[in-house]
């Protein structure tokens, strides 16, 4: 088991956003999380990544045998947790290359590995930028600064490719990507799939799941996973929307 979330409750400024999440992710699996706006998907992703604004009031998160909630955000990253942000921030003055070099070396250091030398590092960047067809010029540009919405998303997956995480959480990576870019980025993600990692995809649209076929689909609603199923569930949602699930939920005993 790579990730095990048990009865996770979390709040921000006293508002409970997550109200008892259970989720298990095994190595080699792809899970899709869907759900209406404001249901808590990004909140869950942020908590996994270690954003300190949220208070976990109940529950546990186990990651690769470790208590994830006890790890600092940077240590989670070094342990292989990667979040492709829904809204990647701009960092003026810090080039993509510099960010990745620093990040990769920190991760390698944590794992007791040698730092990559400049030549090895640059050839790695080249190889991975091909994977998502990222133009070389983005390497020397400041992180996300002035990038278009779609470019930012592609850049997130490029970073994922370079850092090679065990658990990748993609928060609405598809939004903002044009039709061709979606295919390219999705193919890139597929190439990164292996039996040694797992991917959690947050999305609103079935479209992405045509390319990256999930093993499981979950519906998050009002801070809870109210339905889980196979990839067919996404098709059903696309067709019927969320109302039938919302109604079901309201019928459920509290």
């Amino acid at each position: 088991m790579l990730l095990e979330i048990k009865n996770l409750h979390a709040s921000i400024n006293g508002n409970e956003i997550l109200k008892g999440i259970d989720l298990s992710v095994n190595f080699g699996e792809v899970h899709a999380i869907m759900g209406p706006n404001g249901s808590g998907k990004s909140t869950l992703a942020s908590i996994l990544a270690g954003k300190e604004d949220y208070e976990v009031t109940e529950g546990e998160i186990w990651y690769n045998g470790k208590n994830l909630l006890e790890l600092a955000p940077e240590d989670r990253a070094r342990e292989g947790v990667f979040l492709a942000f829904q809204y990647p921030v701009e960092i003026p003055g810090v080039s993509n290359t510099n960010l990745l070099k620093t990040a990769l070396n920190e991760i390698r250091k944590y794992r007791g590995e040698e730092e990559l030398d400049a030549i090895e590092f640059l050839s790695l960047l080249k190889e991975k930028s091909k994977l998502v067809e990222l133009d070389q010029k983005f390497l020397s540009r400041s992180v996300n600064e002035g990038f278009s919405g779609g470019e930012k998303k592609r850049n997130e997956i490029f970073q994922m490719a370079v850092l090679n995480p065990k658990l990748a959480i993609l928060d609405e990576t598809d939004s903002g990507l044009d039709i061709d870019a979606l295919r390219i980025v999705a193919n890139g993600v597929n190439k990164l799939r292996s039996k040694d990692n797992a991917i959690v995809i947050v999305t609103h649209y079935q479209r992405l799941l045509n390319y990256i076929v999930p093993d499981f689909v979950h519906v998050l609603y009002q801070g809870k996973i109210v339905k889980s199923g196979s990839k067919e569930l996404a098709l059903e949602l696309e067709e019927k929307g969320y109302d039938w699930i919302k109604n079901q939920k309201e019928e459920m005993p509290v």
């Binding site: 940077e74 960092i91 620093t102």
Partner: peptide, 29 residues
């Protein structure tokens, strides 16, 4: 400009500790 919490968190999420994140931004600046 201001070094934002969200920038620091972004860099943390890439494996870079807080002070190193500040240094990275400052050195760029």
């Amino acid at each position: 400009s201001k070094i934002g919490e969200d920038q620091i968190f972004y860099l943390n999420q890439r494996g870079i500790a807080k002070e190193d994140a500040v240094n990275l931004i400052v050195n760029g600046y």
